[in-house]
Amino acid sequence: MIKLKNVTKTYKMGEEIIYALKNINLNIKEGEFVSIMGPSGSGKSTMLNIIGCLDKPTEGEVYIDNIKTNDLDDDGLTKIRRDKIGFVFQQFNLIPILTALENVELPLIFKYRNSMSEEERRKRALKCLKMAELEEKFANHKPNQLSGGQQQRVAIARALANNPPIILADEPTGALDSKTGEKIMQLLKKLNEEGKTVVVVTHDINVARFGDRIVYLKDGEIEREEKLGGD
């Protein structure tokens, strides 16, 4: 489902070249739940951005659902993000002026434009909120009227809107207390069990343990991988 082949990412800082990622090879299968761990500055966010088509590698190849993304232009990358990937961020990143439901409708608007009726869009968005286990009575609340956990559920519902095969989560519990965080991780686990490929970036081992596999990053390189037991 996701394949990184010899991926290197460098930044220029004045004369100096900084390696954010060095020769990364990673293969994530369909339906897998992979956690990427590492201290800050280890390159884990860069990696997530590259998988999420928000950033391009300096060298190497990236395949998302068998599509080589290196050659795509901005609009091509936008379409991959829209159709293949659902993003969940640490700070939820909901649009503050829109209600929960409207936030979930956004990806549908970008994808279907005129071809989806408003009722259909609402129905789909409500279904996603249900999948993210947010009570329907919160659908018309603005983000600032919701708790952190509820906001993150809205964000997850939004990530599900276009029914993408992949969910990318960047520190999804980072802004939540541990109890709420655990519930959110359980939700992601459930979605994974329903067939989504999930990639979580975290520095919290308790979060990482929800995955089938943990990839440890250090100084832009894969230090080691750990397969977790269970299922």
């Binding site: 928000l54 609009d75 829209r82 970008f110």
Partner: peptide, 10 residues
């Protein structure tokens, strides 16, 4: 940034 991540074109 969010809108772009969600699939909004330029």
């Amino acid at each position: 940034g969010i809108l772009k991540a969600l699939g909004a074109e330029t």
